[in-house]
């Protein structure tokens, strides 16, 4: 027998009231390659941040803090748009 969810666990209708809870769903394991950041080369231009489709560039006070691997799908956009080649993609 299939094990379906219990309807009593849902609020009325097909709704979710915990905004942005998909952060708990980690897409990081979809990755084929992984970005590496060379902080020495980084000029904090934030190009990688504005183009990252998965919000995986961590920033603090307008500066790049690091790369968050929980959701990074390894697309490589960050490496491609970096004007200083501070990010490189490598096999995982």
């Amino acid at each position: 027998m299939v094990n379906l969810a219990n309807y009593k666990d849902f609020i009325v209708g097909d709704r979710v009231i915990e905004a942005g809870n998909s952060e708990r769903f980690h897409t990081g394991d979809w990755r084929g390659q992984i970005p590496y950041l060379d902080k020495d080369k980084c000029i904090n231009c934030l190009s990688c941040w504005i183009y990252c489709p998965d919000d995986s560039i961590m920033t603090e006070n307008g500066k790049i803090k690091g790369l968050k691997m929980t959701h990074c799908k390894g697309c490589g956009i960050c490496a491609k748009v970096c004007p200083k080649n501070a990010i490189t993609m490598k096999g995982e």
Binding site: N6, Y7, F10, I11, V12, G13, D14, R15, I17, A19
Partner: peptide, 29 residues
């Protein structure tokens, strides 16, 4: 209303996509 969309202080998502595990229970509801 229950969980109205315009209660912007409590953002709610209405009408998500269900997989087989959830569609049937939602119908049973």
């Amino acid at each position: 209303p229950l969980h109205p969309l315009l209660d912007v202080k409590h953002p709610v998502s209405h009408n998500l996509m269900d997989g087989p595990m959830f569609y049937f229970p939602h119908k049973y509801q």
